[in-house]
Simulated assay, not measured.
Amino acid sequence: MSRWDQLNIFFNKTGAVVIFGLNALRGRTINSQGAAVGAWNSSNAESLIRYTVKKGYRIHGWELGNELSGNGVGTRVAAGQYASDTKSLQSIVQNVYAGFEAKPQVLAPGGFFDENWFTEFIHKTPQSLQVVTHHIYNLGPGSAGDLIPKILDPSVLDGISQTFKSLQSLLEKSNTPAVAWVGESGGAYNSGHNLVTNAFVFSFWYLDQLGMSASYDTKTYCRQTLIGGNYGLLDTNTSYRIRITTG
Rank of each mutant, 00 (worst) to 15 (best):
S2R: 06
R3M: 01
I9T: 12
F10R: 02
T14L: 00
V17I: 03
V18Y: 00
F20G: 07
F20I: 07
A24I: 06
L25F: 01
R26D: 01
G27F: 11
G27R: 10
R28V: 09
R28C: 06
N31F: 02
S32G: 13
G38M: 11
A39L: 04
S43C: 02
S47M: 02
R50W: 08
Y51T: 04
Y51D: 11
V53Y: 14
K54F: 08
K54I: 02
R58S: 14
I59P: 10
G65P: 10
N66I: 10
L68Y: 05
L68D: 09
G70Q: 14
N71T: 15
N71K: 15
G72Y: 13
R76N: 15
A79R: 09
G80C: 11
Q81H: 05
Q81L: 04
Y82V: 09
S88K: 08
L89V: 12
I92F: 12
Q94I: 01
Y97K: 01
Y97H: 08
G99A: 11
F100Q: 15
F100V: 07
E101C: 12
E101Y: 14
A108T: 01
F112S: 06
F113N: 05
W117Q: 10
T119P: 09
H123V: 03
Q127K: 14
Q127T: 15
V132W: 13
H134P: 13
I136E: 14
I136P: 12
L139T: 09
G142D: 04
I148P: 04
I148S: 09
P149V: 07
P149H: 13
I151P: 10
L152D: 10
L152T: 07
D153L: 04
G159I: 00
I160L: 05
S161G: 08
F164T: 04
L171G: 09
L171D: 08
E172P: 06
N175M: 03
W181R: 07
V182L: 13
V182I: 15
G187Q: 10
A188Q: 12
H193T: 02
N194Q: 12
L195G: 06
V196P: 06
T197E: 04
T197Q: 11
F200Y: 08
F200H: 07
V201T: 04
F202A: 05
F202D: 11
F202M: 12
W205Y: 13
W205A: 03
Y206W: 14
S213F: 07
A214S: 11
S215T: 05
S215C: 13
T218L: 04
K219N: 11
T220Q: 15
C222M: 15
C222D: 13
C222W: 13
L226R: 11
I227E: 03
G228D: 03
L234T: 07
D235L: 07
N237D: 02
S239H: 07
Y240W: 02
R241M: 06
I242G: 03
I244H: 05
